[in-house]
């Protein structure tokens, strides 16, 4: 089994973004996008992050995940937490 990398985590995040904001179903979303710029509000961001944590089996307080400026940085951070 291949080890999950940061791009795999981006894919999970993007899937949850599309679930939470159905308007973005066909909108291209990548590592460099910030959720706020996509129109995701703060409660929706929380839902997306919690759902991603659940998929990854990570148990991290949300306050530790406020730093990343875009989806790629969030995926990198989650990847590092997972490896730790």
């Amino acid at each position: 089994m291949r080890v999950m990398d940061s791009d795999d985590i981006v894919e999970i995040i993007v899937r949850h973004i599309r679930d939470v904001v159905p308007e973005l179903a066909d909108h291209p979303i990548g590592r460099d996008d910030a959720m706020a710029d996509l129109g995701v509000d703060s409660i929706e961001r929380g839902e997306i992050v919690v759902a991603t944590l659940e998929d990854l089996g990570l148990d991290i307080p949300l306050v530790q995940l406020h730093g990343p400026r875009n989806i790629g940085e969030l995926a990198d951070l989650l990847h590092d937490k997972r490896a730790a």
């Binding site: 409660i43 929380g46 839902e47 919690v50 759902a51 944590l53 659940e54 148990d59 991290i60 307080p61 949300l62």
Partner: peptide
């Protein structure tokens, strides 16, 4: 049994 995943909403 997994309070960390309670959705903020």
């Amino acid at each position: 049994d997994r309070p960390a995943y309670v959705p903020p909403r």
